[in-house]
Structure formats: C-alpha cells, structure tokens
C-alpha cells in the first residue's frame, strides 16, 4: 500500500495537470461525484462538521487496526475537497492519521481560491478526522 505521502504527491501531480482554475474545479467536482456514498444512518446532526458553510457529514469505523472514513456533503465542491482528505487517510492506523501532515492541500493551488470561511471548513474537516483517530486510539489503549 502506498504511503500517505505518496498518495498526497499523486493528488498534487493530478492537480498540476490543470492550468486554470476551471480545470481544477472540474476535477474537484468529479472527485466529489465519485466519493462513495455514506450510509444514510450516519447523515445525522451528530455527524455534522461544525465550521463548514455547507453541511458535511463524516463517519469513521474501526476495521481491525485501521480506520475507515465515509463522508458526504450537500455541496459538490465540498464533497470533492473532503474526498481529497479521505484518499490519503483512509484505511490507516490511528497513529498514522494523527501524525499525518496535511499541508499538501496548500500545494494543490486551491487555497488561493478558498476564502477564509472555506479554508476554515477545510481545517475543521482535518481536525474532525484526527479527532476520530484520537478517539479510536484512546479506545484501543
């Protein structure tokens, strides 16, 4: 299995193929459309991430030693952004997730297009994924 960093580099390379913002956004929209559906049972208020302008639901399961994430949003671009975060962090151990540097998002060249409120949403998503990892780690100790 590729490392978190390798996947992140792949994502950055994918985005580098698009020269203009429209290409990048279209790619993001495609990623959003391809994000596997979350079980409706998890689309509840307690799975909502605070700090996002659109509604984002995030759920995490522990399968063996690894954490499995699923997510959804009513906004498609937001869904694309969360899919970027899930791809490197899915099926990892709590420690791997907790130690992951998610700075790669800056390199995609999307951040300049993200207003502070949207960037805050991004930070909230990462924080929520790490919070899940921390909770599972605490449980397993």
């Amino acid at each position: 299995m590729e490392s978190i960093q390798e996947i992140q580099e792949e994502i950055v390379d994918d985005f580098a193929l698009f020269e203009d913002w429209m290409g990048k956004y279209n790619h993001l929209i495609d990623l959003g459309k391809d994000l596997p559906e979350i079980d409706d049972a998890y689309k509840t208020d307690d799975h909502l991430i605070k700090g996002c302008q659109s509604r984002v639901w995030l759920h995490a399961d522990m399968k063996g030693e690894k954490i499995h994430f699923s997510a959804d949003s009513d906004a498609i671009i937001t869904k694309g952004i969360i899919s970027l975060l899930i791809r490197p962090l899915n099926h990892r151990s709590p420690d791997e997730i907790l130690n992951a540097d998610m700075g790669f998002v800056d390199e995609i060249g999307l951040k300049e297009h993200l207003s502070p409120t949207r960037a805050n949403g991004l930070v909230s998503m990462i924080k929520q994924m790490k919070t899940y990892a921390l909770a599972f780690k605490a449980k397993s100790l």
Partner: peptide, 12 residues
C-alpha cells in the same frame, strides 16, 4: 445546484 457551489464558481 447547491448555492454554496454556485457561489464558489461565481467567485472564480
């Protein structure tokens, strides 16, 4: 179309 998505594209 979600209003938020539309707003993001319009901003671009």
């Amino acid at each position: 179309v979600h209003p938020y998505d539309l707003g993001m594209i319009l901003d671009q």
